[in-house]
């Protein structure tokens, strides 16, 4: 190949590589630029710990604690659903399922992971919420509990498929060594396979959590939408993401409300960034531990 052509191709790829970096940088700059003006209206401490979110009242109040609490409760509840079920199915697929079951289950899990979140929202709104409302005899089925349940189900495929990958990366030679020493299947699973894939499993849990925290459409549809401090898990709530989605359209560009919504976005951005960096860090450690990088 002539060197002229090579140079041009190299240049194109360099530009592409830097373009994504540039976009990321642009997003961060816009987030900061549009968020910071809100702190002229309200102190950072009051913004985060304030218990009242009344952005359209006079005088307005910009305390996002109810939204943070809602996000926290919904996420925690969803984790209780998706971690045991997700890890359980990963272990089943990896250790117990026959070859044929594996061939059916793995693609199904991948398909579930690809279902758009609005479909989960519909499912939650039309089936789960009315069902829970009747079953538990609560005022509205659209509440934190329902949101947790639906989001938890939604995150199962993420947890399952990533942790199943890490279980299947455990070299066969470890299992053979364990069996050859007289260990049974259960001991091998608990003492060799799971510890060896622990970092991969934690990564899958963190990424599942990251998906739940950042999820917008589903929560908007099933969480009930009340921006007040939740007192029970059956209260309607408004997590941070759905607040932005619901209110961005009605807030005037450049108004304090508008800036406050950006600030919420910034916080979400930082939280998910931390999750992803943590996941990356742990999975790197995992490669070192298994000696895969040698």
């Amino acid at each position: 190949m002539n060197s002229q052509k090579e140079k041009i191709i190299k240049l194109i790829f360099t530009i592409l590589a830097f373009a994504s970096l540039l976009f990321l940088l642009g997003i961060i700059i816009v987030l900061f630029k549009e968020s910071l003006p809100i702190f002229k209206e309200v102190k950072l401490h009051d913004f985060i710990f304030g218990k009242h979110w009344y952005p359209t009242y006079d005088p307005p109040e910009y305390g996002i604690m109810p939204l943070i609490a809602a996000s926290f409760w919904v996420t925690a509840g969803a984790m209780i659903v998706c971690v045991p079920l997700g890890l359980g199915s990963a272990l089943y697929i990896n250790e117990i399922a026959s070859f044929r079951q594996k061939q059916i289950l793995k693609p199904i899990i991948e398909i579930l992971a690809g279902i758009p979140s609005i479909v989960y929202g519909f499912f939650g709104m039309l089936i789960v919420a009315p069902f829970l409302q009747n079953l538990l005899n609560i005022p509205s089925g659209l509440c934190a509990f329902t949101a947790s349940l639906v989001l938890g189900i939604m995150a199962i495929p993420t947890v399952t498929s990533l942790s199943e990958d890490s279980l299947s990366f455990v070299p066969k030679s470890f299992k053979e060594a364990s069996y050859a020493l007289g260990a049974n299947r259960w001991q091998t699973l608990i003492k060799v396979v799971i510890p060896a894939s622990m970092s991969g499993i934690s990564t899958s849990v963190i990424l599942g959590m990251s998906r739940i925290v950042g999820e917008t459409m589903t929560v908007l549809m099933v969480s009930g939408g009340a921006a007040i401090m939740p007192k029970s898990i059956f209260d309607p709530v408004r997590p941070m993401t759905s607040t932005i989605a619901a209110e961005m359209g009605e807030s005037a560009v450049g108004s304090p409300h508008y800036h406050a919504l950006f600030a919420i976005g910034l916080i979400l951005f930082l939280v998910t960034l931390i999750f992803n960096v943590a996941a990356e860090h742990i999975s790197k450690k995992y490669r070192v531990k298994l000696g895969l990088n040698r």
Partner: peptide, 16 residues
């Protein structure tokens, strides 16, 4: 398996 131990082709210590 307790009475008959085995050493494999590739050293396979546990990551412990």
């Amino acid at each position: 398996r307790k009475k008959v131990g085995m050493v494999f082709q590739k050293p396979n210590p546990f990551p412990k």
